[in-house]
């Protein structure tokens, strides 16, 4: 009975559609630069505030991801869970590139400004 319910409620994996969706989620918001490569999220910080770019970055497990962050202050960029760090210098874009091999919801933080910049949500492969 449970098995039947499980099968009844389990939707067919819509791989193609989801990839499309995750691409669009990755693309920067309209006001950001139009030249967006797949797997790239660009975030711009001014006065310890996210002024441009997505605050929720959705990718699928296994995707190659690059987070490009530009701040107007010295800061330390940290992606929790993956424990990746990058130093930010004023006006210089820093790239954080990685393969999203762990699924989950990970905070992207600016340590010095104590800013939770965005979250990276890595959807598991079913």
């Amino acid at each position: 009975m449970l098995g039947l319910l499980f099968i009844a409620f389990r939707p067919a994996p819509q791989v193609a559609a989801s990839v499309e969706e995750s691409r669009s989620a990755l693309a920067p918001t309209p006001q950001a630069s139009p030249a967006a490569a797949p797997g790239l999220a660009e975030l711009i910080v001014k006065n310890a505030t996210l002024v441009s770019g997505p605050s929720r970055i959705k990718v699928r497990q296994g995707d190659a991801v690059t987070l490009r962050v530009t701040s107007d202050q010295d800061d330390e960029l940290h992606l929790h869970g993956y424990d990746l760090e990058a130093q930010l210098q004023p006006g210089v874009a820093a790239n954080l590139s990685f393969i999203a091999d762990r699924s989950g919801r990970f905070d992207l933080e600016l340590h010095r400004s104590h800013l939770e910049l965005a979250v990276v949500e890595v959807e598991p492969i079913p």
Binding site: L2, L5, F9, H80, G81, G104, R105, F106, E116, E123
Partner: peptide
């Protein structure tokens, strides 16, 4: 934020939530 500790869990997908609720009823 939660005072301490980062939760890294993703929300349970809706289909799984519905399945869980139905299974609770059936059980």
């Amino acid at each position: 934020a939660h005072s301490f500790g980062k939760l890294y869990t993703l929300p349970v997908p809706v289909w799984m939530y519905l399945y869980g609720a139905a299974a609770a009823l059936a059980l």
